[in-house]
């Protein structure tokens, strides 16, 4: 049981590295979908499946594995932007940053007092790593789609953290959070569409009309 949780966590980290190193937007979206599914499975493989856990995991898998990728690929298809990631920080450098982030999160975890409810020793550092790597992706990539992906990675990190550390969050809260994330990505998708229609591209680094 624990081993499966560990494997899912490793999948989360590997997909994050993969995302840091990939250059095609379409494959980035696919990787993010894989990560979303792995996040969803985390709840199921942890053992002790209740209806609540199953429902939430299913919702996560459907949303992050199917709905978001579909939404984002549609935004990507309809935009006449280049389908390359266009990083501020190169892929190799990003991967190295990813390694540093991973090391830092393990270090940070060792500094914190251990949490009694943790399902696996890896949960907290992996969640931190996803959180920071997501932030890094948002900062280091130019296209709006990729920034949304960064946001999703971050969100996955937070979800992982929540599932591994506080198993008992009321379902209402959890569904509310999920709902918010869904709406967030939805709204971002519409925003990308509109930005694309107005600017002819979705590179957020060229959104420089407002300064000072």
């Amino acid at each position: 049981m624990n081993a499966w949780t560990d494997i899912m966590l490793v999948v989360l980290i590997l997909t994050t590295f993969w995302l840091l190193g990939s250059s095609r937007l379409a494959s980035c979206i696919r990787i993010c979908a894989i990560q979303g599914v792995a996040t969803g499975l985390l709840g199921v493989v942890g053992g002790g499946i209740t209806i609540r856990v199953a429902a939430i995991s299913l919702a996560v898998i459907v949303l992050k594995g199917l709905a978001f990728p579909w939404l984002l690929s549609r935004a990507l298809r309809e935009s006449n932007t280049s389908h390359e990631v266009q990083p501020f920080v190169g892929y190799v450098a990003s991967l190295l940053v990813g390694v540093v982030i991973l090391g830092l999160s393990f270090w940070a975890d060792s500094c914190l007092p251990s949490l009694s409810h943790v399902a696996s020793r890896l949960v907290v550092p992996v969640a931190f790593a996803l959180l920071i790597a997501g932030l890094f992706l948002i900062v280091a990539r130019k296209t709006a789609v990729n920034q949304v992906l960064g946001y999703l990675v971050m969100e996955n990190g937070i979800y992982t953290f929540g599932f591994g550390v506080v198993r008992e969050i009321p379902a209402l809260v959890e569904l509310g959070v999920l709902m918010d994330v869904f709406v967030a990505v939805f709204v971002m998708g519409i925003a990308i569409y509109r930005i694309n229609r107005t600017f002819d591209h979705i590179d957020s680094d060229q959104l420089t009309l407002l300064k000072g």
Binding site: V165, A184, R194, I195, T198, S204, L207
Partner: peptide
């Protein structure tokens, strides 16, 4: 265009920020 840019910044920064806050709540 300006309003869209402002909205994108607002949406992204606040969503990310508030997501961090959720980590704190957890």
């Amino acid at each position: 265009p300006q309003a869209l840019e402002a909205m994108w910044k607002y949406l992204l920064m606040c969503s990310v920020g508030v997501a961090l806050a959720f980590a704190g709540i957890l």
